[in-house]
Write a protein that binds this DNA or RNA. Structure first.
Length: 271
DNA sequence: CTTTGCACCTGTTGGC
DNA sequence: TGCCAACAGGTGCAAA
């Protein structure tokens, strides 16, 4: 479920093992990801130094000289660090081997992820160009959210998940943020008041901060760079809790759908 | 422009 | 037990 907290947890786990190291080898066992892994990626990467590992939205960005290796984990991807890698398992698609033998292994059963080589910082690449602010960027504040939502009839939850407005908030954390803010996911965005927009911004940040502290959420596939699951799923108020009693008021959590995605809310706590 | 629905692909679950 | 449909965390794209 790599949303922002899972990608950030992976980034923090990977960075200390790779920053300052050179790429010794790249093995691509299956290039059929969301877009094919570029055929020349091996020759591009070999010998380069990884200067930094950054995150933008749900993308992991390995800075190498003037250029950037972009990774995305789709819905089921993960990236593990091995001092010496065990035998490959099903759906292990790429190994990036460093000069000290450390191996980054990319695993993605559903292959919705991506691995691309970007010119420069990649800012102008179509995948990154139109992204909205990071949730922790001061630019993402109540007035911004309020202004952007004026005149929009779509459900507030859909706006929250629109990465042109704000990045990193996927289905799980959208549901949880809206619960904490006391806002039903179905509320038309244009009818969210400035005060409630402020509450929502605060709760998006709170949820993401807490999730990062718990190592993200593991529903099925996600593991961090050491192979450890996250634990934030134990803290959910509404996600995947249809019919179960609200932890705050006891009413049964309801489920519905917005844009083909499952939504959950408490009829007592959210208006 | 906004909004909607589908597509990518594999794996798991629940109903019959 | 076996089969099949529905669904799963993301997001780009076409179409309305």
């Amino acid at each position: 479920m790599p949303e922002l907290p899972e990608v950030e947890t992976t980034r923090r786990g990977v960075a200390p093992h790779v920053v300052g190291r050179h790429v010794a080898e790249l093995h691509v066992y299956d290039r059929r990801l969301r877009w094919p892994v570029p055929a020349n990626l091996r020759s591009r990467l070999r010998g380069r130094t990884i200067e930094a590992v950054e995150r933008r939205s749900k993308y992991l960005l390995f800075r190498m000289g003037a250029n950037t290796l972009l990774m995305h984990f789709g819905m089921t991807g993960s990236l593990r660090v091995y001092r010496s890698p065990p035998p490959r398992r099903l759906h292990d698609h790429v190994d990036l081997v460093l000069d000290d033998g450390t191996t980054l292994r990319y695993h993605d059963p559903r292959r919705f992820g991506a691995m691309l080589w970007l010119r420069g910082s990649g800012e102008t690449h179509p995948l990154l160009r139109d992204l909205g602010p990071e949730p922790f960027d001061p630019a993402f504040d109540a007035r911004y959210l309020w202004r952007k939502s004026r005149g929009r009839r779509a459900a507030i939850k859909l706006l929250l998940m629109d990465n042109r407005l704000v990045v990193g908030v996927g289905n799980i954390y959208a549901n949880e943020s809206l619960f904490r803010a006391g806002i039903r996911p179905s509320v038309p965005a244009g009818r969210v008041s400035l005060a409630r927009a402020a509450r929502l911004v605060t709760e998006v940040r709170n949820v993401l901060t807490e999730a990062i502290a718990k190592g993200g959420s593991t529903l099925r596939d996600y593991v961090d760079s050491r192979g450890e699951p996250g634990y934030f799923q134990l803290e959910y108020f509404v996600y995947d809790r249809a019919g179960a009693p609200c932890h705050v008021c006891g009413k049964p959590i309801r489920s519905t759908r917005h844009g083909q995605r499952a939504s959950y809310y408490c009829p007592g706590c959210q208006t």
